[in-house]
Amino acid sequence: MIDALAAGLRANSCTVTGPMNADDARTAIVERVSGLVACTDDIPVPGVVDALLARGLEVLTPDDPRWTARLVDAAVGITGARLAVVQPPAIALAAAPGAPRATSLVPPEHVCVLRVVDVIATFADAMAEIADGELPSALTWIGGPSRTADLEMITTFGVHGPRAVEVVLVS
């Protein structure tokens, strides 16, 4: 199932790494990013913020009173995911006080950290499960990088949202 998800997300033009354990995931994330990094507090790998700071990177977290103003300058947004589905391939992010909606929207690059236990087979199954539980103010499904086919129906990436989406799978 995880292989199928990875293949599906790649077909949607995402980069996929893992599955790997939390320590490897942390290292992989920290090595990949640069510039101002915005992090939500629902990343399912502990110590990402500290590791980024230790590498000398600037980090923006939701407890920063200037979050909204500074997010515009962020190069990367790192978030967790509430769940993912294999068919059709997509990840879902839940808005929360520590997980603002714009983290996965405003920066040009989005890194999404997903636990493999949160992967569900089909969208229909996922919707049945979601409809029964507590709903967040916004649940955002993401298939891949922002895209448009408005120019002569040929796909162009990064029109409003991120140009690149990287999914890190954590076992």
Partner: peptide, 18 residues
């Protein structure tokens, strides 16, 4: 599936930043 699907259940809640 379209690239983004947003499911909105009410306005921002207490403590949310956007």
């Amino acid at each position: 599936l379209s690239n983004y699907v947003t499911m909105i259940s009410g306005p921002r809640r207490a403590g949310e930043l956007d």
